[in-house]
C-alpha cells in the first residue's frame, strides 16, 4: 500500500483538493481564440485564391465574427485574472520561457490582422455597418486602405492563424505538471479544432450553395482528422510517464468517463462526422444545421475536458481529511 494523508490543514483556495485555477473563462478563451484562428485562416485563403465573390461569407462576413470572438476572448481572460489591477503587466515584460507571454504579444498581432480583414470586407459583407463608418474621413480612409493591403494582410493572417491556434494547444502542453494536457499533440489538435469551428460557423451562416459544398467537405475532413488526433493524443498519454498513464484513468472508468465519451466524443465528434459524410453526397437539407452546432459544442467540450482533466491530474495525490465543516462547529462553541 501507499497512503499519504495530510495531517495538518491544507485547503488553499482553488488549489485543494485539486487544482481548479482555470475555469470557464479560460475554456471560453481557448474556444474563441480557436474560432478566430480558423476565421483568419479561411478568410485569408479565400482572398489569396481570389475567390472572394464565390465564397463571399468566408471572405467578407466571417472576419467580423472572428473579431467579436477575439474581443470576447480577451474580456473573458481579463475576468479570469484574480489580480486585475496589474493586468497591464502582461505588456510590461516579454518572458521567452513563458508560453502565456508569447500569447499576450501574439494576440495583439492577431487582433490587428482580424481587424484589417474585417475592414476589407465591411462594404460588401456588412453594408449597414460600413455606411456610418464611411461618413467619417478617417473611416473611409481605413476601409480603402484595408482593401488595398488585403493580400499581404491575408498572407500574414494565415501564418498568425496557425501560430495562435498552435499557441492555445501549446499553452496546455507547456504545463508539464498537468500530465493529462501535456501531450505534444495538443497544438495540432487545437489547430484542427479551431479550423473546424470556423468551418461550422460558415455552414451556419452561409446561404451560398457552392460555399456550403466546399465547407461540407472541409468540415468532414477536419472532423476525421480531429478524431484521429484525439485518438493519437490518448495513445500518446497511454504510452507516456506513469503520471500520464494515471491521468487517463478518469476517462476510462473514472469520474469523467460518461462526460468524455457520451457527452463529448459521440455528440461532439462522431455524430457530426456521420452527418457531414451524408452531406458529401451533394445535398444539405435544413436539418443538417444540427451538425455544425454540434461541432461548436464539441470544440467547447474538448477544451473544457482538457482543461479540467489537466488540472485534476498531477503529481500530488494526498488524502485530505480536512473538513471545513469542523470550523463551523468550532464557531458554534
Amino acid at each position: 500500500m501507499r497512503e499519504e494523508i495530510l495531517i495538518t490543514v491544507r485547503d488553499n483556495y482553488k488549489i485543494d483538493p485539486t487544482v481548479s485555477v482555470w475555469g470557464w473563462q479560460v475554456i471560453a478563451d481557448l474556444f474563441l481564440v480557436g474560432l478566430t484562428a480558423g476565421a483568419l485562416i479561411f478568410a485569408a485563403l479565400v482572398i489569396l485564391r481570389g475567390k472572394e465573390e464565390t465564397f463571399d461569407f468566408t471572405a467578407k462576413r466571417l472576419p467580423l465574427i472572428g473579431l467579436i470572438s477575439i474581443g470576447l476572448a480577451m474580456t473573458f481572460l481579463f475576468l479570469k485574472l484574480t489580480h486585475k489591477i496589474v493586468f497591464w503587466r502582461f505588456f510590461g515584460a516579454f518572458v521567452p520561457t513563458a508560453v502565456m507571454s508569447w500569447g499576450a504579444w501574439l494576440l495583439q498581432l492577431v487582433i490587428l490582422a482580424i481587424l484589417l480583414l474585417t475592414l476589407q470586407g465591411l462594404r460588401k459583407g456588412y453594408p449597414s455597418l460600413a455606411s456610418p463608418v464611411e461618413k467619417f474621413g478617417i473611416g473611409r480612409w481605413a476601409l480603402n486602405w484595408a482593401e488595398r493591403i488585403k493580400r499581404p494582410v491575408a498572407w500574414a493572417s494565415v501564418v498568425l492563424g496557425v501560430i495562435i491556434a498552435f499557441y492555445t494547444g501549446t499553452l496546455m502542453t507547456s504545463m508539464d505538471a498537468r500530465p493529462f494536457s501535456s501531450s505534444g499533440l495538443m497544438a495540432p489538435l487545437f489547430l484542427v479544432s479551431g479550423l473546424a469551428t470556423a468551418a461550422a460557423v460558415v455552414l451556419i451562416g452561409s446561404r451560398n450553395a457552392e460555399e456550403r459544398r466546399l465547407f461540407t467537405g472541409t468540415l468532414f475532413g477536419l472532423l476525421a482528422f480531429k478524431v484521429l488526433l484525439l485518438a493519437l493524443t490518448l495513445a500518446n498519454l497511454a504510452n507516456g510517464s506513469q503520471q500520464q498513464i494515471e491521468s487517463l484513468h478518469p476517462i476510462f472508468g473514472g469520474d469523467y468517463t460518461q462526460l468524455f465519451w457520451l457527452f463529448f466524443v459521440i455528440p461532439g465528434l462522431l455524430v457530426p462526422l456521420v452527418i457531414e459524410a451524408f452531406g458529401l453526397r451533394g445535398k444539405r437539407p435544413a436539418w443538417m444545421i444540427i451538425s455544425p452546432v454540434l461541432v461548436l459544442y464539441g470544440a467547447y467540450m474538448l477544451r473544457q475536458l482538457f482543461v479540467d482533466l489537466g488540472q485534476v491530474s498531477g503529481y500530488i495525490d494526498y488524502v485530505n481529511t480536512y473538513n471545513p465543516a469542523l470550523l463551523d462547529l468550532l464557531g458554534m462553541h
Binding site: V19, W22, L81, M175, G310
Partner: peptide
Amino acid sequence: CTGCGACIAACP
C-alpha cells in the same frame, strides 16, 4: 502578479 494561474498550473 496578475493572478493568471500559469505558475499554479506549472508547479508539480
